[in-house]
């Protein structure tokens, strides 16, 4: 690092130092050092990478068009007959004769999209509210936290169901909205907490004393130093939003348009045939469990790694 010359650089360097530990290694660096050796993290990361790669190349992996009803002549509704596994269709067909394996593979795309977008929306909302509350304090803080507390006073999943039921015509968008809005208060509280803790910390005091304007203090000093817990939470929310979206589908509040497959929806629609054809539920459920586990493992190991109590 070059010697700080301007006033701004001096403050940034100061903020940087105070975020470091006594040993001179930044929190992020020491966390990464521990993560690299953590089997939990590596397993979780491997699962996520595997699913991401699958999602990326799914259209080429899938043996058939996931929307084409190739096996429709083998579906007999009255006798509850669904195409069994056969040549060219190793997992058989679904309730309307579409190749099940192809739907499972391509379904990874939409499922991950739901998780990612839900997390991003929740994160963005939480960032705005949490930063407002944590940066301003005072009545802004009280007001924002009142709203957040009321939202938190309704059980999370129940609130998601309620929001989902608001829309007469559910769609992919309403599902994402329902599972993401309920995450906003969690992110907001988290961020506000760590920002409030920093308002009185040395590097913020130093920046204030040096005459830095409030906005740069918030965005360059407080926010970046508050991100650790937010990142952990995001990873965990990636898992819960995929599971919550499946629960919405299960209650009939999911996306009714199933041309593009999604695991939660596949699991939700399989409930009517689960006793006779359990594999239609087991496969998408298995995929959801494994990817949710992947995100949870990474989130948990990140939490451990970033916890100052665990630093050596």
């Amino acid at each position: 690092m070059s010697t700080p010359t301007t006033k701004k650089e001096r403050i940034d360097a100061l903020a940087e130092t105070s975020a470091r530990s006594d040993s001179g290694v930044s929190l992020a660096a020491s966390a990464w050092k521990r993560l690299r050796r953590s089997p939990v993290f590596l397993l979780g990361a491997a699962i996520i990478v595997l699913f991401l790669v699958t999602a990326a190349i799914a259209p080429w992996l899938a043996p058939h068009d996931p929307a084409a009803r190739d096996l429709i002549d083998q579906v007999v509704k009255a006798r509850n007959e669904i195409p069994p596994p056969q040549e060219g269709h190793p997992l058989g067909g679904d309730q309307v004769g579409r190749d099940f394996l192809s739907r499972l593979l391509v379904g990874s795309q939409q499922t991950l999209l739901v998780g990612v977008f839900a997390t991003l929306i929740g994160l963005a909302g939480g960032l705005v509210l949490g930063t407002l509350a944590g940066a301003f304090g005072g009545w802004v803080d009280s007001l924002v936290m009142r709203v957040v507390d009321v939202m938190l006073s309704i059980p999370q999943l129940l609130l998601a169901f309620g929001i989902g039921a608001l829309f007469a015509r559910p769609s992919l968008f309403t599902v994402i909205l329902a599972v993401s809005i309920v995450q906003i208060p969690v992110f907001a509280r988290l961020l506000r907490g760590s920002m409030l803790a920093q308002r009185s910390s040395d590097h913020v005091l130093a920046a204030t004393a040096l005459g830095v304007k409030p906005a740069p203090i918030v965005f360059r000093h407080m926010l970046p130093n508050s991100l650790g817990p937010v990142i952990v939470q995001s990873t965990l929310v990636l898992a819960t939003s995929i599971i919550d979206a499946a629960a919405l589908s299960f209650l009939g509040l999911g996306n009714p348009d199933d041309t593009i497959p999604e695991w939660g929806q596949m699991l939700g629609t399989a409930q009517t045939v689960i006793d006779s054809h359990p594999h239609l539920a087991f496969w998408p459920a298995g995929c959801i469990i494994v990817i949710a586990l992947g995100f949870t493992l990474v989130g948990e190991s990140l939490r451990d790694a970033l916890d100052p109590k665990n630093r050596r």
């Binding site: 898992a239 599971i243 499946a246 629960a247 299960f250 699991l267 539920a281 459920a285 959801i288 469990i289 494994v290 949710a292 586990l293 949870t296």
Partner: peptide
């Protein structure tokens, strides 16, 4: 794993 399994499933 318990956290990752959807309860209805």
């Amino acid at each position: 794993i318990g956290v990752a399994v959807p309860v209805f499933f």
